[in-house]
Write a protein that binds this DNA or RNA. Structure first.
Lengths: 212, 212, 212, 212
DNA sequence: CATGAATGAGTCTTCATTCAT
DNA sequence: GATGAATGAAGACTCATTCAT
């Protein structure tokens, strides 16, 4: 129980094993939640998917709900990285790049995202954390970008609020069919093309410019 | 006990009472489903919300799930009417009008719509019926409109598939905050303004037209 | 409410109507009980079979169980008559006649008998009333008959107790397939033949008499 | 924890424990079913009788009905053994022996047999499986025996069908009072005497043989 | 740490009975 | 008397969590 041969290696190895186990559980759980929805998933399902006994789950998580919240946490890291990257967001290419990165994140975390879909609308912690915390942050970045561009005379004086919502909605709509498994997951090239189309549409609209 | 005055009124009164009661249950149920989500709502909750005994629910619906499906059906009528109206969809004003009507429908059915949000991802009948059935239909109308306009030289040759998705997503994004109760329900005027902004953005994009 | 034109005719007509209604209910109920068993029969089933509303049943009977007990009572009249008839029971023909009559009673009351079958084993009132009350009475008659015959030297000195049981059992076995609907209901002639065969078997056994 | 001594013991111990538990439940359930009848028995009753929580029952059986069916299966083993034994059935002693064995089986399985009595009339699976399947098989054996004996001139030319029914009925009648708890369970000696009396009655009838 | 049997509160649903019309 | 909607107690079954091994 006490130190032997230096504490680090031993503690560390144990911690690493625990961390590995937790991640195994989360990966498996995300798949099951994604397929059945949180409420319809039983701990038995989770245990089977993680290939362990039900009781073992409780050695790594406090309960079913905590597993879901841990999944939520897993998504923060790449999203925060994305936001960090997107901070400047000043040119059209910035926009393409951030949309592309966003698509990449969702694609690489499909199961985690899907897992949250059902409880998003119901669980206030998740809703506030994810939607309010992250999405609003993203929204602000976009709103700021638009406002600055309008001020600079590059963008038409459109209500930035509505525009932001539609941009986010458009982006979500692009991945929703994939999340629902109705579309195959797009390749890197497809993601690039999608991002360009999206930004193109947003910037220039559907209508033909008369004299260009 | 009194004169019969024709048989209709008597049958009719009973039928009307039943219909009224069903509607009462649906209205109450939609609110509860919207707040708690389908799976987290118990029949006890439903009974309390409808101010009746649990057993009474079963005089009007076969079970909890049938109540949800009945809510789903309630949404068909106005949506189908909207689609019928939107059939031509040829001018920009058509577009504004249909977006405006769509917003109106969702607003008038807020609770019903919210009620479906959670189970949409999990219940295949609902998913296929509602999303695939309706949304695809709407999508086709939009895709057709875009394709025709591109052919006519009015629209730029953008991928109609991606454009449709983004339009739908943008539209949904406009309502989502309202659905989640994060925005107050927009008034008729606000809906009109929103619809115009949305269509304006879609048609002309964010960027300033250089020579206009 | 009080007397008018003599009480009898009016009371009588009302009473007769009530009696008729009760009988209608019992007839219908016996069929349903017979098919589904008492416990699996709902008052809704009973009401439908009697072609009236559920509530109306309660104007004629205290509840579901009382309907079953009333069915039990219906069987007493013919059984008691049979027993009265069988009182002497001294010749072989008496035996044939009483078996024949017994078969006739069961056949004419098939549904009533079937209706009681499920609850016989469970309801102590029914068990004590019917089995103990009636069957034991019948058993005593048979036992007495056998004992007297043995004493008179007509019957071999077989244990009258066991013999009685086997006689009753044999009789029941003859009607059981009919009760279960596995045999068609026997005609009068078939009943006569069955009774003769049964008594013949009981009196003379299976074995060939060596010198007769 | 200790040496493995081969893998069997470990798997086996768990399996044996499960098997023991299942049997405990069945034994307890049979008693309750026998007393109250299947339909009037609640899972709460069953749990109490087996001295465990309601939920635990479901770790061993799929549901209430499966417990009943398992009880049904318990009865097959000895009955099938009896039938196998009785195959030849050619002498009078064979007959005595098989009746005696039959009595023994029923006595040793009193609760199991009682448990089935109520649902027999209502549950088609049970009815067809047990009654039709087993009883008809037994009936055929008896019919065949009688027919052969008649042909051989040992038995009088009595309708074998009716005779079989009465034999089965007589046998059942011998046990019914015991099943209902109205008689104490017969000892081995009493069973032997009963069997002899029964066969004696069947073979030689009640009447004194005039010249014997 | 791993296991999985045991637990019992909680769910959906049924149905005998009541009672206002 | 007849009706059938309303009731709510009771039933079969589920499942997150605990805990002895």
């Amino acid at each position: 129980m006490d130190a032997k041969k230096g504490e680090h290696p031993r503690q560390s190895r144990r911690e690493r094993r625990i961390e590995r186990r937790r991640r195994e559980i989360l990966t498996a759980a995300a798949q099951v939640f994604a397929q059945k929805g949180y409420a319809h998933t039983t701990t038995k399902h989770l245990a089977e998917a993680a290939d362990m006994a039900e009781g073992t789950l409780y050695n790594y998580f406090e309960g079913k709900r905590e597993i879901l919240l841990a999944i939520l946490n897993e998504m923060y890291v790449p999203i925060d990285a994305l936001l960090e990257n997107a901070r400047p967001l000043s040119t059209r290419d910035d926009f393409v790049r951030i949309v592309e990165n966003g698509l990449e994140i969702f694609v690489s975390q499909l199961d985690f995202t899907r897992a949250l879909l059902t409880e998003i609308w119901v669980d206030d912690v998740i809703l506030n954390d994810l939607i309010i915390g992250r999405l609003q942050y993203i929204g602000q970045a976009i709103r700021g970008f638009i406002a600055r561009r309008i001020e600079a005379g590059n963008f038409r004086p459109i209500d930035p609020e509505a525009a932001t919502l539609m941009i986010l909605g458009g982006f979500i709509a692009l991945i929703l069919p994939v999340l629902r498994g109705k579309h195959p997951t797009p390749t890197a090239e497809e993601r690039h093309r999608l991002a360009q189309t999206a930004v193109d549409l947003l910037f220039d609209g559907l209508r033909v410019r008369e004299n260009q």
